[in-house]
């Protein structure tokens, strides 16, 4: 056995139960005392579990680890973030009453704001979170001088929060996660049932329309059917209604979510929208009829100009309206 192997095994391959796991990485259990300092939540595994579904619940397979792994690999140093004015404001009476066991929520706001909203839902209601950040902020370490202010309020509009050469700057997402982590941890400590209604957390900027230049880091991404459950899975889990949380009433979700929402609507699910700017919808989401997005078949080709590169794809995916990811490797 080679030296490299032995090193690898030493690092990772020790038998289970011999202490290689970080015991603090598990979400707090009911009654546990939790830290109120956001700096105590910067470890990627801890964030992964805090912002993930109940470990015994049905939604665990859909929780996406990619961005969390990037925090570790890229040695990101998260910062605290100011709360968006809507998040900090007082809630109207009856807010979150719609968060019922038969309701799936998709928070689809720009970057850190989406995390702030989802964490607020989690902290103030009864639900569980599923992250969809299937990319890295940037695959290479930051050159000196490129790190911008990270403690700004999250941007309310796409496409860029920081470095304009990065298509989707999700450092802001990570900053929001650590900022909200003490509240999320405190909610875990009050007990979260395994069958709590699920809340998918998305970055609405994941597919910008800009065409990246050769010097731009293209980390746009789709949310595919490894992350979004289909109608049958949802129905068998007792879901009958989907609430889309968007920036405004006329918000058009990106093609991936648009196709999925349309598919669910045509399959008989109730669909509604809560908007950031209209507090009345925080109490009673407005019914919507979701329009389909552009048909793109991720499984059969190199996706599109809006999620990578290459030519636009004209075929619909084989899995209904939702993209199905295969990758370029054979």
């Amino acid at each position: 056995m080679s030296r490299r192997w032995l090193q690898l095994l030493e690092r990772l391959g020790s038998p289970l139960g011999t202490g290689t796991e970080d015991p603090d990485a598990a979400p707090p259990v009911e009654g546990q005392t939790v830290s109120e300092d956001w700096r105590d939540y910067m470890h990627h595994e801890r964030l992964y579990r805090l912002y993930g579904p109940h470990p015994e619940g049905a939604w665990r397979p859909y929780h996406c680890p990619t961005l969390f792994a990037g925090i570790d690999r890229l040695k990101l140093q998260p910062h605290e973030q100011r709360l968006h004015e809507r998040i900090a404001a007082e809630r109207p009476p009856g807010t979150w009453d719609w968060l019922r066991p038969d309701t799936l929520t998709v928070v689809d706001l720009p970057g850190g704001l989406s995390v702030q909203m989802a964490a607020t839902l989690f902290a103030e209601g009864t639900c569980q979170l599923i992250a969809t950040f299937d990319h890295w902020p940037r695959a290479n370490s930051e050159p000196a001088g490129m790190i911008r202010r990270l403690d700004a309020e999250p941007t309310a509009a796409p496409p860029h929060a920081g470095d304009p050469r990065i298509m989707v700057d999700s450092r802001e997402v990570v900053n929001a996660m650590v900022t909200m982590a003490p509240r999320v941890a405190a909610r875990w400590a009050r007990g979260v049932p395994a069958d709590a209604p699920p809340v998918w957390v998305c970055d609405a900027r994941r597919l910008t329309s800009a065409t990246p230049g050769p010097g731009d880091y293209d980390n746009r991404y789709f949310i595919d059917d490894s992350i979004l459950p289909g109608p049958e899975s949802l129905r068998s889990a007792g879901i009958a209604r989907v609430v889309h949380v968007a920036a405004d009433a006329d918000a058009t979700p990106e093609d991936d979510l648009a196709n999925w929402l349309h598919e669910l609507y045509t399959a008989g699910f109730d669909t509604a929208r809560m908007t950031l700017g209209d507090p009345e919808t925080w109490v009673i989401p407005m019914p919507i009829i979701p329009a389909p997005g552009a048909p793109i078949a991720g499984r059969v080709s190199n996706r599109s100009d809006r999620g990578g590169f290459g030519q636009t794809i004209s075929e619909r995916g084989s899995s209904g309206g939702v993209y199905s990811g295969a990758g370029a490797g054979g």
């Binding site: 990619t66 299937d134 990319h135 890295w136 695959a139 293209d218 980390n219 746009r220 991404y221 789709f222 991720g298 190199n302 996706r303 999620g307 990578g308 590169f309 990811g325 295969a326 990758g327 370029a328 490797g329």
Partner: peptide, 10 residues
């Protein structure tokens, strides 16, 4: 192919 995280992981 940057649109796929399965390729990024490779």
């Amino acid at each position: 192919a940057t649109a796929w995280s399965v390729d990024l992981q490779q």
